[in-house]
């Protein structure tokens, strides 16, 4: 199965391990990823806050790059990129006048023949749980994961339409197929404060504390994410949240692709597991000791 791959800015820097682990684990599942040539930033939140036309044009430029290179489906692993690209695609497809206006701004002729999908959606629907299960060589027995979806993997349901909006289950099913135990918990779709990490860190620290507290309460060993913004906030702001609110949690935050890679027998460093601030070393010793 051949797919376009839109890594997005974060996967080339603070979320490098998300990129590394996707490139390692996907071939085990016969997913061939072709990077969208010369992709550019989707504009993220600052784009749509400042200018609607800019936000649409930056996304459409990337969709056109995919279309021009015959990549009919684009996988965006970052929930924010996914949301921007998919909603822009939807808007210009539904409104011919808007499409031609945005095409004028971009200076290309995008025709709308591209689908934007998230990695977990493709894993669940196209690859399927049985194929994922059969790629497992080291089942993650005894590990308890809190799957965290954050805002934009399920919201708004008119854009992110592949899972239940209030109680998504796709990642839970995937980690189950890897032999781990997904915990039932309260904060699956709460917001981490994403774009305020730099400009209003105290808000992010409060939100992060609430999410970590909930995962601890559900007795999760680790939180599994599928968004680089969720990851950087939960991992990087964890020590601040611990100090500020006097907590004792120490919860490694893992990307879904790292968890899949681990179960497929890929190495700790190759999956970028050494790149987290909250080290998953002890957790993995405990979990993988059963082999």
């Amino acid at each position: 199965m051949r797919y376009g791959y839109f890594p997005g800015c974060a996967l080339h820097s603070t979320a490098k391990e998300f990129d590394l682990s996707i490139r390692l684990s996907c071939p085990h599942l016969d997913l061939e990823l072709v990077e969208v040539p010369d992709w550019s930033c989707c504009g993220a939140s600052p784009g749509h806050m400042i200018s609607e036309e800019l936000a649409l044009a930056l996304s459409v430029r990337n969709l056109y790059q995919a279309e021009r290179h015959d990549l009919t489906t684009v996988i965006a692993p970052c929930a924010a990129c996914y949301s921007r690209l998919k909603s822009a695609n939807k808007e210009v497809r539904e409104d011919a006048r808007l499409m031609s206006r945005i095409n004028r701004v971009v200076g290309e002729e995008f025709t709308g023949k591209v689908e934007v999908r998230h990695l977990i959606e493709v894993l669940y629907k196209d690859v399927g749980l049985s194929r994922i299960e059969s790629s497992v060589t080291k089942p993650l027995k005894g590990m308890k994961f809190a799957c965290y979806y954050g805002c934009l993997l399920t919201r708004p349901p008119k854009v992110a339409d592949f899972d239940d909006v209030e109680n998504p289950i796709i990642m839970d099913r995937i980690v189950e197929a890897l032999g781990a135990e997904p915990v039932s918990w309260s904060h699956k779709t709460e917001c981490c404060g994403a774009s305020f990490a730099i400009s209003r860190p105290e808000i992010v620290v409060r939100l992060v504390d609430e999410i970590l507290k909930a995962a601890q309460f559900a007795a999760a060993d680790s939180i599994v994410v599928a968004c680089p913004l969720c990851h950087v906030n939960l991992d990087m702001r964890q020590s601040q949240a611990r100090n500020k609110y006097g907590r004792n949690y120490n919860i490694p935050i893992l990307y879904i692709s790292q968890v899949i890679g681990l179960a497929q027998g890929e190495a700790y460093k190759a999956l970028g597991l050494d790149k987290h601030l909250v080290s998953p070393k002890d957790l993995l010793k405990k979990g993988l000791a059963s082999f």
Partner: peptide, 9 residues
């Protein structure tokens, strides 16, 4: 507003 889309949802 963090654009988390909870309100719209």
């Amino acid at each position: 507003c963090a654009s988390c889309e909870t309100c719209f949802t």
